[in-house]
């Protein structure tokens, strides 16, 4: 029973990180019908932006809540800028070309980030400094809680609520939803669709950057290829929840995080990375719109 709760907590904290990344996929797909392959690598860049911010300000010697806040802010700024640049330079010129071209470009951008990351940051894993110190863990009888995991969960939930508020309660969010619904029509109604698309990229990338820092806190080893697998898994989570559906992506990510944790805990740990793809194939075969997606008929 204790073990079960422990796995549940691990799964939820991993799931919330997947959720932060998955939101970026789902936001961009909802607006452009483009799978932003580079998204996992934006998450990597976010982790490195946080890493360098910590080094620059010397937070490693003075761990505090402020340090965490500033690091998160810098990571989100860095990855947000990167997302904006990628959209502006690589995706916007291709907006009118066939989807396959945009897909190939996205794959290219992803590899460019990974390997130029190896050039700039170095290929060896780096140690992410601890910027928050908790004395020991909290334990309730047998159950031991890692405060970092709880913190990751809470910060992610806060960010997601903020995003939800932005999308469903503000003017900007309404513009985003309108653009996603029908870009031409939205443009005719006076919505600056190009700016909205840029903003979407920035938002999604900033969330991924925050996820990068949170992962660095809990699993303090970062390297330029760290984004590949979480990126693909978060994509699976987005598809699981119905791609384009913001709340669905969070649900899908939690399901994925939990099922992975239980597979590792009770089954075959070596097949952990195969699980997400197996899940993806099963969903796409039996319910391609995902759990909460809306079916769109294909037109000639």
């Amino acid at each position: 029973m204790i073990e079960l709760v422990q796995h549940l907590i691990n799964g939820l904290s991993m799931g919330s990180i997947y959720a932060l990344i998955a939101l970026g996929y789902t936001l961009v797909f909802g607006i452009l019908q483009l799978i932003n392959f580079a998204h996992g690598d934006i998450y990597m860049v976010g982790a490195f932006a946080g890493f360098y911010a910590i080094r620059f300000f010397g937070f490693a010697e003075h761990p505090s809540w402020l340090a965490l806040g500033v690091t998160l802010l810098f990571a989100m700024l860095g990855s947000g800028c990167l997302g904006w640049c990628i959209e502006r330079l690589a995706y916007r010129p291709l907006r009118r070309s066939p989807r396959i071209n945009a897909l190939i470009t996205a794959v290219g951008v992803s590899l460019l980030l990974e390997f130029s990351g190896q050039l700039i940051f170095g290929a060896d894993p780096k140690f992410f400094p601890q910027i928050l110190i908790f004395d020991g863990g909290w334990s309730f009888g047998e159950l031991k809680l890692n405060p970092l995991q709880i913190l990751i969960f809470l910060i992610s939930i806060a960010l997601m609520l903020a995003l939800d508020w932005l999308i469903f309660r503000t003017r900007m969010g309404r513009a985003m939803r309108a653009t996603s619904f029908n870009p031409e029509c939205a443009a005719l109604m006076g919505i600056p669709t190009d700016q909205v698309i840029s903003l979407t990229f920035v938002l999604g990338s900033a969330l991924a950057g925050a996820a990068g820092v949170l992962v660095g806190l809990a699993y303090p080893k970062i390297d330029p290829l760290m984004g590949v697998l979480p990126g693909l898994k978060a994509f699976v989570a987005a598809v699981l929840g119905g791609i384009g559906n913001v709340r669905g992506a969070v649900a899908g990510a939690m399901i994925l995080g939990l099922s992975e944790e239980f597979l590792v805990g009770y089954g075959a740990p070596t097949f952990r990375d195969a699980l997400a793809f197996g899940l993806l194939i099963i969903i796409l075969l039996f319910k391609p719109t995902g759990l909460f997606g809306i079916k769109r008929a294909e037109k000639v």
Binding site: I35, F271, D273, A274
Partner: peptide
């Protein structure tokens, strides 16, 4: 199964299968 899918989905699923094959060979 996977060729019933289109475009981006097919790309990801084939990528996934490639990885699954690698994991299986690894084991």
């Amino acid at each position: 199964p996977s060729l019933r899918l289109k475009g981006d989905y097919l790309a990801i699923v084939t990528l996934g299968f490639g990885e699954i094959i690698r994991v299986v060979v690894l084991n």
